[in-house]
Write a protein that binds this DNA or RNA. Structure first.
Lengths: 227, 227
DNA sequence: CGATATATTGACAATAATGTCAATATAGCC
DNA sequence: GGCTATATTGACATTATTGTCAATATATCG
């Protein structure tokens, strides 16, 4: 009841002289641009504040628009979430496969692993995907499946090429899969609990880098031993 | 407006004869028992449905009480969350340190690692803690810090004992820390994305076990190489 | 320039969740 | 058996958030 009275203030504000139509200005973006800005803002909120930071009004404020505009572009909050998931999956896929499939044979396991960690920690991608998995939204949009499969295939090809060149035995495919799984698990884990654990252990940013290098070497040693 | 009319039904139900006071029965638990039941229900909801499954009314229904009873025992929803975090931290600490500090030297790295994975996947402990970290509730209740520190200390002691007995060089402490971090990260990661990745790779329950064994062997090999 | 499509908005509706409170039932104690 | 403390509850208040809608401004196209 008290809320109704408040809005009369805007009316008085508009009637500075006797203007019936204040003719307020608006910024009008293309639909794609608007969608991009909204997704960017949502991504940032999610990375910073977690799942509960995804409120339409907050995102709208960040972008500088009103919240119905978001509904207009994404139909519903769920639509926004789905779009965000789809975009993040796509970005992750491009980032990972792009680095792997570069054809640059000079890159070794350490490079690949470093890239995986960066791709997942960058912009809180792992946080977003984790939340998606925690809330059980993953069964429907099982894009992640394909990504994993593709990556393992690429890796296996690389190892087979390498083995053939060296004339050694063909690598075990399950071994390749397990390496990929461990790397993915560790990268996700680090994105979520890594900072806490590192802090607890008194590690600074540089210590985390040392950890990643240590891990890369562990994998490299394993690869060497298999040859 | 329409909601008011609905409740008259209960009145008619109560007036089977002319009973002014239906004298409804109640189950009355001790405060501790009630708190325990509520926390159990909240834990299950969280493990199954993620963060969004933590609604007072749902939990109350699971326990078979009304939602104000939860408020009575935990002050607020936040209070419930904090209590749940505290209990989970305690359980995890006991589980991990208990297994590690058992003084049983017959246990090797594989046993320890298996235990860590089980402790975190059991009851969705990792899911709960992940959510806690994702929502940024960890900085205050930094119990996790202590746990990590304690575990690394215990592990380091073990390695030093072992090295002394074998007469080999003392192990690097950072190496021990990194092993613990990797194990923790991997276990967390597996709890969150592991199932998805495993499914994507066509692994069944047994495949996941093989992965864990593979990981344990990887660590064991590393330990051997260090000696 | 005029018409059309649509991006944008303010106000409101609907819903859902937490939290408050007085009333009530029950266990434990004298 | 009566008393006291408190666990429990139904009804209600409060608040926050998503979603709807008609109105409006603006880019684009003829």
């Amino acid at each position: 009841m008290s809320r109704v009275a408040k809005k009369t203030a805007t009316a008085s504000e508009a009637s500075a002289k006797a203007a019936e139509k204040p003719t307020q200005k608006r910024v009008r973006r293309t639909a794609d641009e608007a969608r991009r800005l909204i997704l960017d803002a949502a991504e940032k909120r999610l990375a910073r504040q977690g799942p509960e930071g995804l409120r339409l009004q907050d995102i709208a404020r960040d972008v500088g628009i009103s919240h119905p505009a978001i509904l207009h572009h994404f139909e519903s909050r769920e639509g926004l979430v789905r779009a965000l998931i789809a975009r993040t999956n796509k970005q992750l896929r491009d980032s990972l496969l792009g680095a792997l499939g570069d054809g640059d044979t000079s890159r070794d396991a350490a490079d690949h692993i470093g890239h995986v960690f960066e791709a997942l920690s960058d912009k809180g991608t792992a946080r977003l995907l984790s939340w998606l998995l925690l809330t059980g939204r993953a069964t429907e949009e099982s894009d992640a499946h394909n990504i994993m499969g593709e990556i393992v295939d690429v890796l296996q090809d690389r190892r087979e090429e390498y083995a053939e060149k060296k004339g050694t035995a063909a690598p075990d495919k399950e071994d390749t899969l397990f390496i990929a799984m461990l790397t993915a698990n560790a990268a996700f884990g680090e994105a979520i609990v890594g900072r806490q654990l590192a802090e607890a252990a008194g590690l600074d940013q540089h210590g985390i880098k040392r950890f990643r290098k240590w891990f890369a070497k562990l994998i490299n040693d394993h690869l060497e031993a298999k040859r």
